[in-house]
């Protein structure tokens, strides 16, 4: 009898221990851990564990208003993904086929084209550029900027082109054509920044003509790329060639049009707007490139920022094509349209 009582006591104690352990286990379940070495539990447990650890990041409220918070959280999630990637089998699989299909690793090219109603050749030139871009192997995204208007000519031309494009419109009325162009480019850059599009950005004016290999070349751009371009003007003798002077793909200097008025004009970049390309991530992920993130505030001056960066960070600027950037792949036909003729130059008479 006593023995059984003792035994009961023993069992009670054991049960108490089990219960204690159970509760302990119960609560450890709620502690977010990132410890991946708990292999004892097998795969399933490991996955739930990491999942659990995500939760605090995940549940935090997402406001569109609070961009910084959003971005912060987002990045946190990304970091985690890399971590979990290392444990998953996917990495092995990826390593097994390291771009077996070279096509699949082609970079996105983002072509930004500002268009102004004041350019009387706008529709025709847009059509010509569309024909060229249609031939560029994908992925390519064409961003065409235009002032909001009732006219649907630009949309119609774009629509018929078959190119993947985004037609971005803005409302502001800007009198100075150059400033409007800069504003249009900024509008496009803001779009890229807002959407965090990742690719190589190039500003293609309507009066540019490209050799198709140009688009292959700029895909090689890591941070900044630059190349010489020919500027042709009607009825002139001289052909102006502007751009970098390179040793192999290393930029060692610039061949630029001399500034007429003052040599030390810092407000205007001497570089032609179409003579460089850059990685779009410098717009929305400046830290990645070791830059202060403060440019976010000056989104109105995004253009200036990019131009400044190209000139300042010359070590990161790559000459294109890689063989001493000696090949002209881009021609620019100078057609200034300053004169105040009636604005509605409709191409097709309907």
């Amino acid at each position: 009898m006593e023995r059984s009582k003792k035994k009961l006591q023993l069992w009670k104690r054991a049960a108490f221990h089990f219960l204690l352990c159970f509760i302990m286990g119960f609560f450890t379940g709620f502690i977010p851990t990132s410890d991946k070495s708990w292999t004892f539990f097998g795969n399933v447990v490991a996955s739930t564990q990491s999942e659990l650890s995500m939760q605090p990041l995940e549940i935090s409220s997402y406001h569109t208003l609070n961009r910084s918070l959003l971005d912060g959280t987002h990045r946190a999630v990304l970091m985690r993904s890399n971590e979990s990637l290392q444990t998953g089998p996917s990495e092995q699989e990826q390593a097994e086929e390291p771009g077996t299909d070279k096509l699949s690793s082609r970079r996105l090219v983002i072509i930004v084209t500002p268009t102004s109603e004041r350019n009387h050749l706008r529709e025709v030139l847009l059509m010509r550029l569309a024909n060229t871009l249609k031939l560029v192997p994908p992925p390519l995204l064409w961003m065409v900027v235009e002032q909001q208007s009732d006219s649907s000519q630009v949309s119609e031309i774009l629509r018929k082109s078959g190119v993947m494009y985004r037609h971005v419109v803005f409302k502001e009325n800007i009198t100075d054509l150059e400033m409007e162009m800069d504003h249009q480019r900024n509008v496009a850059l803001n779009h890229i920044e807002h959407h965090r599009l990742s690719g190589i950005v190039h500003f293609a004016g309507l009066d540019n003509v490209y050799d198709l290999s140009f688009f292959n070349e700029i895909r090689a751009t890591e941070v900044f790329g630059t190349w010489p371009m020919a500027i042709l003007s009607a009825n002139r003798e001289r052909v102006i060639i502007e751009g970098p002077v390179c040793d192999s793909s290393q930029v060692i200097g610039w061949h630029l049009k001399k500034q007429k008025n003052h040599t030390a004009d810092t407000t205007k970049s001497p570089l032609h707007i179409s003579s460089f390309a850059f990685n779009s991530s410098i717009l929305w992920d400046p830290e990645r490139w070791g830059r202060p993130s403060s440019i976010q505030d000056t989104s109105q001056k995004t253009m200036k920022f990019v131009e400044k960066e190209v000139l300042e960070e010359e070590t990161e600027v790559k000459g294109i094509p890689a063989q001493g950037c000696s090949m002209i792949l881009l021609w620019n036909l100078l057609i200034p349209t300053k004169h105040p003729t009636p604005p509605h130059a409709s191409v097709a008479s309907r």
Binding site: L108, I110, L141, S152, S155, H195, L197
Partner: peptide, 14 residues
């Protein structure tokens, strides 16, 4: 951030 996804809050005329 996917260029294949043309998504936005802005309602265009087109």
């Amino acid at each position: 951030n996917n260029p294949l996804f043309d998504i936005s809050t802005e309602h265009p005329t087109t």
